[in-house]
Design a protein around this nucleic acid. Structure first.
Lengths: 149, 149
DNA sequence: AAAAAGTCTACTCGTTTGGTAGGGTAGTTA
DNA sequence: TAACTACCCTACCAAACGAGTAGACTTTTT
């Protein structure tokens, strides 16, 4: 399951996608409209800034905004930044791999199954971006020129 | 990520699949060969018995054994029994559904993405059984007559 | 200078995870 | 009946994690 932290992160990002190209958005605005505890949200947004997803501006008229076009940030990346591994076992993870002590991957049926699950999950999460977070029938970024990828 | 409890459960079940049709297996045997703490394993096996996956026999020559043919127990079921929901949010879960407070599922892009992830995961976990836990090239139950399903 | 905003450190507090220790009970078999 | 084995219970523990909270600090704008 997603942690609340990740859930909040996605809510905040959804908000920022909807306000894309409207300049910096206040933490307090996101906090109130999305009902996310202010100080908790502060941490989350800062983290997303330090890892390159967001950028910010201080002082009056400041706030947070997306660093890149929504379609450039993959859901999988955000997930990994907040909640860590996507795979269900360390021995199946691409980014957080750790060998199994008690079992040999070559003969472990569970390993094979969880590799399949990982691949199926990644096939989706690596191909969805922040732009997909907003409802399709009122997607404000749908008409924007997609960036070169 | 899987909890250790679930990981141990799958290891124990793998062991019991390999010993299928050889009569009851001692907790202590599984504990030693799979390096699972004895008392912890006791709980896990008991739980799996109470939920209909395993059966047991007391006294000399007793132990645990699979209640049904390995190919009759789906991986998804075991997972849910030990670790709970497979979905990444309660509002996306089939067996543990809970409505989202802060978002409307109809307009929530995250919801749509996680439904896809859930379906892709279940497509695998509902179609793999305990029989798939043992390595293919030495699968001792491969030759057994599959039960009517 | 003053106000507006993000930045940063640290702390709290409850729950879950992953155990350990030890007992007594009740079926089963030899 | 004795030995064996699962069953079931209580209690305890340490560490990590989850979900925040508090307060001071820094930077930018007006």
């Amino acid at each position: 399951m997603l942690t609340k932290k990740a859930y909040y992160a996605f809510q905040a990002l959804t908000h920022l996608v909807e306000r894309y190209n409207e300049g910096p958005v206040l933490i307090s605005e996101i906090s109130e409209e999305r009902k996310i505890p202010l100080k908790f949200l502060e941490n989350i947004l800062l983290h997303l800034k330090n890892t390159g997803i967001l950028d910010s501006k201080k002082g009056k008229g400041g706030g947070y905004f997306l660093k890149a076009h929504p379609s450039e940030t993959r859901i999988a990346k955000v997930f990994r930044l907040i909640d860590g591994p996507i795979a269900m076992l360390p021995c199946v993870s691409l980014y957080f791999y750790q060998r199994c002590e008690n079992c040999n991957e070559k003969f472990c049926g569970l390993h094979d199954i969880l590799v399949e699950v990982r691949d199926a999950t990644l096939a989706i999460m690596e191909n969805r971006t922040l732009a997909d977070l907003v409802a399709k029938d009122r997607n404000p970024v749908a008409g924007l020129v997609p960036p070169k990828m």
